[in-house]
Design a protein around this nucleic acid. Structure first.
Lengths: 358, 358
DNA sequence: TTCTAGTTTTGGATCAATCCAAAAACAACC
DNA sequence: GGTTGTTTTTGGATTGATCCAAAACTAGAA
């Protein structure tokens, strides 16, 4: 007797799932050929390819990416770590990432670290277990700089986004916060301001440092005698309180640049609470240019940091790194833009001058 | 000769990866035992378990979830589809999902459908290929109601969130928008309003229908003669334009309830543009209670819809469905709450009454 | 000591794909 | 017809875990 009779009949598989084997049988070719068709290999003859395609449709086959990944060691997945997904800035960034990945057939795991290095660490370990092809990381505050080296040792390509830790070279996508603050101050100085304060940022991560550096450099570049940097966390309430503190000092600033738009909104509220008008009695400039900036009253002048574009660039970088793991590390730093609106006196200044014009 | 000599030496694996095999060799047990230890099986003796744990640490083993999933048909992954991740409401919802999943060792793929049924479809097919254990779906506008049945046929557990399509029974987590609008109108009526309009919602999906239904029911429940429902998309600009249109009508409304907070912010701006004060000349109530609501000027009264909690409940439902695929479908509908602030005249009414008090 | 019952451990098959070297099919030329 | 070269196709091994039935230990009672 042949061994055919011994092994159970196998045209329809034991489990309900249709596999390459089933398609191969249906199309009268081998497993390998079907696999080649699925991967669009040019090796397969046209007639065969078409026949296999027909069988795939006929049997309602669903590609099993997990099984493929096991052998091929590519999963077409990416891990994305942000520290505050509820912040609309990150929402826009994730949208940019999603759009870029989608085009390449990649999907992404998303995690919200809530700025906790421990949560972040747990997630990264889980990503390793899932064998993601790479990581997009907005490092949580207080992340050990050694993490970048750890990921390197894990052979997990990692692109840092917005904040960066560790020492170059690393892959990074972000915005030039330093330049952004510089732009804002140049604009204010051109409008005659001489006492410009900066509000916000409470911990030493790169995105804060860069803003402060931009502030200090611009102040000294313009030879201004006044310099005032007020640390704080970066909520609306912080802006609200900070501006009132600054107004109580003598001399008070005539303009403030804020860590982000939330702080700026708070600062505007604080001015209004004191019976003052933003853009008239004190200029206010925010950072990020969130949707609400254009629609607040008065409209907020803001340094646009392009979250969608940052996300898209970060995703591109990651895909490139996955293709060439040993290529030179890259840093994509987008140029910010100043969106001038009412809150820095743009269209109100003629009514009541903010400061002596040059 | 034995076949030992024929097969290549295998203590350290060919590929760089440490596998169960390697740990087994190191600990002097079998692959199966190591697997049992990893899955915390009570079958393994304490001594053995400890020895295996030591070997796992010593060799720096990383669990391969892909390989495990192939055999066990559980991936510990979930697909999440939203239609606008840049909206802070969804940000908060995703944060809730993330927190609930994290606790159970699950991770989630996130996709942004941008309200395109085609993008949504592509993503769902990809999720199927990745063999996710379930789907959390905020259906894109215009989604074919048959999609729910399709997912059912795919044997992919699906929990709908915020919007629902198809016919019950299905799993769903959301907020009772109908009740929310009812609460708002009850409050306004109690304050003496008789002409209450509703702004926003342009397409017939469940979340819009429920709001409209709540509006019409409340109006007729209170026996009000005035009824005005203005359709629109749901951006700030829509609110801005809608309120000005309503003010031009005779009689104009004395209060408006808005589809979401963005529309409400726009409506407040529109009032201010006309030299009117929200909460004094016309009451404004929003929906969602986003962070900004409490901090706008005047502070916005809003129907809180608890996005974080909705996300958390949706995730819980999904995990439950995965455990018992044939259990009864469940609907978790959270009760909204009215957060009363200045924009509906809460603390301003004594200055200048909005309407005759009862 | 043997038998039984309970506790641990194990090897082989399996999941569904890819990889790769070798075989088969085909065409072109002497 | 035989030889060579090119294009297609193939089967067996491999990836790294889990499943499962059977084997190997224990300990306690007869």
């Amino acid at each position: 007797m042949t061994d055919e009779t011994q092994r159970p009949h196998r045209t329809r598989r034991d489990s309900g799932n249709v596999t390459l084997q089933d398609i191969a049988a249906h199309a009268g070719v081998s497993r390998s050929t079907v696999s080649l068709v699925l991967r669009e290999s040019p090796l397969v003859a046209k007639r065969t390819r078409e026949q296999v395609r027909r069988s795939i449709k006929a049997l309602g086959y669903v590609y099993n990416r997990g099984a493929a990944a096991l052998r091929a060691t590519r999963t077409s997945t990416l891990g994305v770590v942000v520290y505050d997904i509820a912040n609309p800035f990150f929402g826009a960034m994730v949208a940019g990432i999603d759009a870029a990945l989608n085009r390449e057939g990649y999907v992404s795991f998303l995690a919200n670290s809530e700025d906790s290095p421990e949560r972040q660490q747990r997630f990264l370990e889980r990503m390793r277990e899932h064998r993601v092809d790479g990581i997009l990381l907005c490092p949580a505050e207080g992340t050990d700089p050694a993490l970048v080296a750890t990921l390197e040792a894990w052979k997990l390509p990692c692109v840092q986004v917005l904040r960066h830790i560790g020492t170059p070279p690393y892959d990074y996508a972000g915005t030039d916060f330093r330049q952004g603050v510089g732009l804002a101050i140049d604009h204010l100085v051109a409008r005659g301001h001489e006492r410009i304060a900066f509000i916000g940022g409470h911990t030493e991560h790169s995105a804060t440092r860069e803003r402060w550096q931009g502030y200090r450099e611009a102040i000294s570049r313009h030879g201004l005698g006044y310099q005032r940097l007020l640390r704080s966390t970066v909520t609306r309430r912080d802006g609200f309180e900070a501006i009132q503190q600054l107004l109580g000092e003598s001399p008070p600033p005539t303009a403030v640049v804020c860590h982000n738009d939330l702080v700026a909104f708070g600062a505007m509220l604080g001015l209004q609470r004191q019976g003052l008008t933003p853009g008239v009695d004190c200029a206010v400039i925010g950072t990020d240019d969130v949707e609400e900036a254009a629609l607040s009253a008065p409209a907020l002048t803001s340094i646009a940091t392009h979250p969608y574009a940052v996300g898209r660039e970060a995703a591109r970088l990651a895909l490139r790194r996955i293709q060439t793991p040993d290529g030179a590390r890259e840093q994509v730093v987008l140029a910010p833009q100043l969106r001038v609106r009412e809150s820095c006196g743009a269209s109100l200044a003629h009514d009541r001058p903010l400061a002596a014009t040059p």
